[in-house]
Design a protein around this nucleic acid. Structure first.
Lengths: 364, 364
DNA sequence: CCTAGGATTGAGACCGGACTCACATCGATT
DNA sequence: AATCGATGTGAGTCCGGTCTCAATCCTAGG
């Protein structure tokens, strides 16, 4: 019953000081736990603070310490469990060190990201973790660097931005998993990703996403090393919403020269691809093999369970947050960055292609 | 090359004023777009600001406007897509109105929640959205009210805290879905939830979670209305991690008097329950029927697809954020709160129980 | 030509803490 | 008893904006 609808004026150090009959400076020292304060004064001040339910104004504090104890996180889509999990890693780590997290979602729009970064800098966050929507257009990230505030990249690299980056080595895991498919007998292997491009895909083209670039490089190398032609016509980018992904999938499966394996670039794509496969009445892995990035729990529940590329997403979040906080606090790196390695987890969704001709055509 | 490792001092209005050869007050007016400023001055100030790359310090601004344009969100587990999606609703809505979001994860720990709320108030957020870990211990939420800052509850109610609450009516959807199971012939229906209790469950006991209370009430009512005994021994609370859930599931399935249907209280529980059912070599719905809360995309991919209770989680986030922002801006409620109704989506995981004796035993 | 009243303008207070500096106070030292 | 360094203490400045207030500048009406 101590409230009166209207927002009551906050209790300040000055109020506490008056109540404790000491100067504002002394009260501030006792409350802020700095400087020299006699036991007598400290007691009186703390008692008064308790009595008045004093709570420091962190805004004011940040203002002249220059520290907000807040870090900004910019991701494309928090709804995607990939980022949800990374976010857990970040918030868990931040909390341990006494930092809070401001989250901004960009919907993978570069404009929104530019805006997000500016807003966070304006709010004087102590540092930033960004999962850049584009690995190429990075001027806004360079501005962060120039502002002098620590920046760390998550999940994806950015060219021309020389900061610690926490992402798994997509090239090698992509090579490994593609090789796995090739060894199983697959030649027509499709790769479906939502990454946006202006022109249709051609091998070696520059992509907005370092992640996808690296993955495609891995695919290409795997085919090269197996002395097989790289089926670049099966790289399907610009897969947008669920409908578009299902359309692409049907196209891959039911065309004149159907694919025998599909790789989904993330969990969201995987959902629609698998749904389209099931709707087409095809079975995994008998009619088509399937492989996806990210090991979500539900991938164990389908029939068959899905072969996935597990990424240490939670650890990635932890590593990024730890590094950022280390930078903020001006500490040197204790050791080499933790290795973030993806693993191919064999479950039941990859098998031999139905059509064994493919094998004999290009020999071993 | 305009950077020098060390954090350069920020450009302030005073700097801009000097460059534009006007007073600080005039520069501030031109930049802040308030008060009266001649075109000449405005132009010079804006040019100088541009030149110096001036960026306002939002901290300082918040300090004397008393507005931080930031709302605090406290949830139990951002990793859970349920909250991930709600979070999207919140951030999308906040962004539209020019607000940012500080996210704190509590791991469903009340202590962490109390702390989170205090930290956010200290940071002078304009308002709070909380998904309370406990519906009973709510003193910290009452303190928010007393601080005069707007508060809105998400997903769960809290007793004794008179604020707008955005959650679906669990009682009726639970009644509806239980009735569905009963009509399909089920009598031994289990309910698995992670909600923590000190004592074993007995009908009518007070639970920490209003959500679960309401759901159990719904189950109870459904059995009562069907003139059947309420199998309260099958209400399994305190299901903790994945292992514990699987243990509970096996216990329900393989005991002397096995259940014929299991209801999973959320998506995380569902994953472990389904996994345990599959590992036990039982089939859904032939051996056991399955029903779960939350309609995640993957529930369509299992064999059979799962019957679920869809909750408008994204809309819930939107509604909560809209209401909070409305309160912050002191506007009256435009109309009644949007209805947040859950829907039972029939897919393939609910069928008739194998053992038809149950039906004849209790007639109908 | 003079003046009332609105538009402009600058000085300075203020938000709520942190921190500097000058001035006690006090026990220990010689 | 005089001196010195180590606390304690309070007045006041500063952080970077917003905002009040009084002074000044214009311009139209008389």
């Amino acid at each position: 019953m101590s409230t009166d609808g209207s927002r009551r004026r906050d209790v300040t150090v000055a109020d506490v000081a008056k109540a404790a009959k000491v100067s504002k400076a002394q009260a501030a020292r006792a409350l802020g736990n700095y400087g020299a304060v006699s036991d007598d004064v400290r007691e009186r001040v703390l008692a008064a603070a308790e009595e008045l339910e004093y709570r420091p104004n962190e805004l004011a504090r940040s203002m002249n310490t220059g520290k907000s104890n807040t870090i900004g996180v910019v991701v494309g889509d928090i709804e995607n469990p990939h980022f949800g999990l990374a976010m857990r890693g970040i918030t868990d780590t931040a909390k341990k060190s006494g930092y809070n997290v401001i989250l901004i979602n960009t919907d993978e729009e570069r404009a929104a990201e530019v805006d997000a970064v500016r807003v966070l800098l304006d709010k004087r966050v102590d540092g930033l973790i960004v999962a850049p929507a584009s690995s190429l257009e990075t001027s806004h990230l360079q501005q962060v660097r120039e502002s002098g505030r620590p920046l760390v990249l998550l999940d994806r690299a950015a060219t021309g931005v020389d900061v610690e980056t926490f992402a798994v080595d997509m090239g090698s895991i992509s090579y490994e998993s593609t090789t796995h498919l090739i060894e199983a007998g697959h030649r027509r292997i499709a790769f479906v990703s939502t990454v946006r491009t202006d022109a249709p895909y051609v091998p070696g083209m520059t992509l907005d996403s370092s992640q996808i670039s690296d993955r495609l490089d891995g695919v290409h190398r795997a085919f090269d090393d197996a002395d097989l032609p790289y089926p670049s016509d099966l790289i399907r980018l610009n897969a947008g919403d669920a409908d578009s992904i299902m359309r692409i999938t049907r196209d891959l499966l039911l065309g004149p020269d159907p694919v025998t394996a599909i790789v989904a670039s993330d969990g969201l794509i995987a959902l629609s691809v698998v749904e389209a496969i099931q709707e087409s009445g095809l079975s995994i892995p008998d009619d088509v093999s399937f492989l996806m990035y990210d090991d979500f729990a539900w991938t164990r529940l389908t029939t068959p369970p899905l072969t996935v590329i597990a990424q240490p997403v939670y650890d990635m979040g932890i590593a990024a947050a730890s590094a950022l906080i280390r930078q903020i606090e001006g500490r040197k790196s204790a050791g080499p960055a933790p290795e973030l390695v993806a693993t191919l987890i064999h479950r039941g969704s990859v098998g031999a292609p139905r059509d064994a001709d493919v094998l004999s055509q290009s020999g071993g």
